[in-house]
Design a protein around this nucleic acid. Structure first.
Lengths: 254, 254
DNA sequence: CTTGCCGGATTGCTCAACAATACGTACCGT
DNA sequence: ACGGTACGTATTGTTGAGCAATCCGGCAAG
């Protein structure tokens, strides 16, 4: 399942942050990142990408143990290389590393959800308020909404979820900060773990698609105060629904 | 220099993100992280802590190459173990990992400074505005100010810098979000790299101590709007000064 | 001065081994 | 039946060596 969806966004190299553009004054611009395109290698990076994609897609459910020897053999890499990849994923909070016990796909609790939504409320609302947002970010917001609506009409709920997170990434991109974008990408990846812990994941996205559209319009029209208000309501509702799902899940069989 | 200062804050385990507090409803609070205190082992964690402290204190200056074999031999750990620690630090952006070339202590440029301050403006100002801030966070703000003032009177500039960053960490803590705190700790650690790239690092902290005190008072009195305004001015000035320092540095011998 | 080539050094990754730790299970006394 | 102990096994933590791939510096040729 979930195998047919695109790998979402494993683009983040995560370890090569800077092309360090040479100070040469010559007109050779546009080549500064060519180096990165060339040696996109590094087994560890690709390994982390693969595992990240598997976790985000739900192929590896929260709580699953990732035994080193087994995974290393299955994928065909050395145990040491796998451990390096695990360190990255642990730093992204997609897996937890319990000493002498192993690494497990992260299981989030109610406190995590509350913390995630506290962060989202603060960052997303502040991003909407930022002056002089780059126009391509606004366009990206609209594009995400369109994608989500297509997904709804075709009942591709997984894609709807992806588009929803893309929508909120685009909102954060209004702030125009790379670090903020990275942080939010990681937090939204965490959020996918919560969805995978639920039954009927799609019901957590589908009702919000039209709200996203409304918020997008408000942003496009520069009505930031109203957009922020709508966003707060949105986030409160979504948080409450997820907390309800977690409570329900823990009530029955845990 | 800088050797006499305390290791600042190497507390962040960075790889064991969660004590995973057991859902047991019993009143055994405060013990959830006892497990971590016990097996505080893990060579990789301690190794990362050591390197992080060295970098943050300035013992390892930006641009320094950390050759695997040399460092591993010097510290007395295996090369594989060291590589795992490097992955952590690279993810924290304290070092850069250039494929087939090695890892270097990160060198930040003007764009990095702008990005860091864009993030700080957004996050810190929003944190001040958050309702219902935990009182211990406010107390921590005041404590940081006091420490900074003691540092000034004793001309311990390095401690003044540490206290300044502690002040801003405390401001972010007003939001009461663990993830936000972690992110800001990492960003402020990055900022220390910028300071180490400058001549006379202390002149970037000393003029701001009394401003911190004023902001702290405004926060304590609940005058958030004024506090935010003062914070924005503060951040703008600090950013401009750092950018000036970088420009100056790149003008002469790079 | 540029181009091409070579040798030395470093990194990327693998493999195998051993110590340290956690877990399941059988055993034991009460 | 219950709590505790001991033990064997499986997994992780860490090490060390080794080889291919890659980068860097220098040197020779054009």
């Amino acid at each position: 399942m979930a195998q047919e969806t695109a790998p979402a966004g494993p683009e983040s190299g995560a370890s090569e942050p800077d092309p360090e553009p040479h100070p040469s004054g010559s007109r050779l611009a546009g080549l500064s990142d060519a180096r990165l395109m060339l040696d996109r290698t590094s087994t560890v990076s690709r390994l982390a990408d693969v595992l990240r994609a598997q976790i985000i897609e739900g192929a590896l459910l929260p709580g699953t143990q990732l035994a080193e020897h087994a995974v290393a053999d299955a994928i065909g890499v050395s145990r040491n290389t796998l451990r390096e990849a695990f360190r990255l994923l642990a730093h992204e909070r997609l897996v937890v590393h319990e000493p002498h016990r192993g690494v497990f796909v992260r299981t989030l609790d109610a406190d995590d959800v509350r913390d995630i939504y506290a962060t989202r409320r603060l960052v997303e609302c502040a991003a909407v308020r930022v002056e002089g947002a780059p126009p391509e970010a606004v366009a990206e917001i609209r594009a995400a909404v369109d994608t989500a609506e297509v997904g709804v009409s075709e009942k591709r709920w997984n894609d709807v979820g992806t588009a929803d997170l893309r929508f909120h990434s685009a909102i954060v991109a209004l702030a125009g900060s790379r670090r903020l974008n990275d942080m939010m990408r990681r937090i939204l990846a965490e959020l996918r773990l919560v969805f995978h812990m639920m039954a009927d994941p799609h019901r957590f996205h589908e009702p919000y698609v039209h709200r996203n559209a409304a918020i997008a319009t408000l942003i496009e029209e520069g009505r930031t105060a109203e957009a922020v208000q709508a966003l707060i309501v949105y986030l409160d509702d979504a948080e409450a629904q997820l907390l309800g799902g977690i409570a329900e899940r823990s009530r029955l069989g845990r």
